[in-house]
Write a protein that binds this DNA or RNA. Structure first.
Length: 293
DNA sequence: CATATGTCCTGAGAGC
DNA sequence: TGCTCTCAGGACATAT
């Protein structure tokens, strides 16, 4: 007997820390709140150094001996807020990780922070090195992340807000949702997942979306991102993304469309997932469940 | 103002 | 087998 085997040809997918992954990083280092920074070190490695600003002697002068007041998140960045209102930001971009456990590889460790009270050291690891680390004073922080530079957090949206932000735009909704100046935290993976659950075609122009549909997009955005946070984010086939304990996330097992071209849509169970390219990025959707109308 | 495009970087996989 | 090429998509600088 001959069994037919269908082999799916898939591209390897890189992980892009988006809101749920960065929120998972934040939660993973909450224990440093109240602890004192005892050392900050830029780790020398063979790779091209990542961007760290200002220079390390300034970072040490402003951080060592100071207490961490709060660990927060702004969009896709982890924010370590010091007692003097200085904030150290980890911006992981494509492959950055914040870790308290042994890293996936020593060679890509870029930065370390040590703490009092016996807290574990915090590492910043980055395979491709596109991420950034930077320290801002209160005024610099407020200016850089003012509403004109970064939109409201994706967990805080509602339909009316989305209609106000996007309602006159001619852009495709999927492309628009990735614009961090408009809404902060949604990336390429969750944009496809959100629009699939909301049953909106990714190429639909923003100015043709009704308030009712924006309501649905807003509710779905919050629900999906919160679910993904519960599952500690998505670790894709390349395995790059890890939580702070260097364990993979779990939300990839709940993806409906992302990186699933050719597989049947889990909603209609009938139509294969389609992959298209919008603004040089992959979009995945179901032609049956997500009509242009 | 809004929107589009090129760039940074590494490693995996395809194809020859 | 080993080389070259392409691609993945974060944020931002620059162009239109």
């Amino acid at each position: 007997m001959i069994m037919g085997i269908l082999i799916m040809i898939k591209n390897e997918s890189n992980t892009m820390p988006e809101l749920p992954e960065v929120e998972t990083m934040r939660r993973g280092i909450l224990a440093i709140e109240g602890a004192k920074v005892t050392a900050a070190e830029k780790v020398r490695c063979q790779r091209k150094p990542i961007a760290i600003s200002p220079n390390m002697s300034t970072i040490r002068r402003r951080m060592v001996g100071k207490k961490v007041k709060q660990v927060g998140r702004i969009g896709k960045r982890v924010v370590i807020q010091m007692e003097n209102e200085d904030r150290l930001l980890f911006e992981p971009r494509m492959t950055g990780l914040v870790l308290v456990a042994d890293p996936p590889s020593q060679e890509h460790v870029r930065f370390r922070l040590e703490f009092s009270r016996g807290e574990k050291e915090v590492l910043y690891w980055d395979r491709r090195g596109l991420g950034m680390i930077y320290l801002l004073n209160d005024q610099q922080y407020q200016q850089r992340f003012s509403l004109e530079n970064l939109g409201p957090d994706a967990l805080d949206v509602n339909g009316e807000l989305l209609k106000n932000i996007f309602g006159k735009s001619k852009r495709a909704v999927k492309v628009a949702l990735l614009d961090q100046k408009k809404v902060a935290g949604i990336g390429n993976l969750y944009a496809s997942e959100i629009l699939h659950v909301a049953a909106i075609h990714p190429a639909k122009r923003c100015d043709r979306i009704t308030l009712k549909q924006w309501n649905l997009i807003a509710e779905t955005t919050i629900r999906i991102l919160q679910e993904a946070i519960v599952h500690e984010g998505s670790t894709l086939s390349d395995g790059t993304y890890r939580n702070t304990l260097n364990d993979p996330g779990g939300y990839q097992n709940m993806h409906r469309v992302y990186d699933k071209q050719g597989e049947f849509c889990p909603i209609c169970m009938d139509t294969p997932i389609t992959r298209i390219v919008q603004a040089q990025r992959s979009t995945f959707f179901c032609k049956s469940c997500q009509k242009r109308g």
